[in-house]
Simulated scan of single mutants.
Amino acid sequence: MAKLSLSDLGGLVYSTEVGRTCPVCRQAIAACTCNAPKRPAGDGVVRVSRETKGRAGKGVTLVRGVPLIEAELVALGKQLKAACGSGGTVKDGVIEVQGDHVERVMQLLQAQGHKVKRAGG
């Protein structure tokens, strides 16, 4: 069996100067750009719909297709919930606002420069 050197093991993993480092670019984990979040690809249309399925008859407004990374999506969700005076969440890239606020949400998104379509009935 051949003897392995440190470079064969993948390089530097920890440094006392910067802490944990990325094995690919050898930067500090906080400064690593290898796995930088990218904007999701889509058709550029934000779709807003109302749904009650699986929610015991309670209606929610769903916003899909917003081309933002997760942190920006959470901030947008917070803005929409505050403007509608309602609760909600962000799950799997979909903003959910409690209640029937389709028209209000569409106006807010258009004011921010998004191309918006109403989806569903």
Rank of each mutant, 00 (worst) to 15 (best):
M1F: 14
A2G: 10
K3Q: 11
L4I: 15
D8I: 06
G11K: 00
L12T: 06
L12A: 05
E17G: 06
G19N: 15
C22W: 01
C22M: 01
P23D: 00
C25M: 00
C25D: 01
R26W: 00
R26L: 00
R26K: 15
A28N: 04
I29H: 04
I29P: 00
C34K: 00
A36M: 04
A36K: 12
P37K: 11
A41P: 01
D43Y: 12
G44R: 09
V45Y: 15
V46K: 01
R47N: 11
T52F: 08
K53Y: 13
K58C: 07
G59T: 11
G59E: 14
T61I: 02
V63N: 02
V63K: 01
V66F: 11
P67F: 08
A71L: 07
E72I: 04
L73M: 08
L76K: 03
L76R: 03
G77C: 02
G77R: 06
Q79R: 13
Q79N: 15
Q79Y: 07
C84A: 08
G85H: 09
S86P: 14
S86D: 02
G87W: 08
G88M: 02
V90F: 06
G93W: 04
I95P: 02
D100K: 07
D100H: 12
E103H: 09
Q107Y: 11
L108H: 14
L109Y: 12
Q110P: 10
A111H: 02
G113M: 11
G113E: 15
K115I: 13
K117N: 15
K117L: 08
G121F: 09
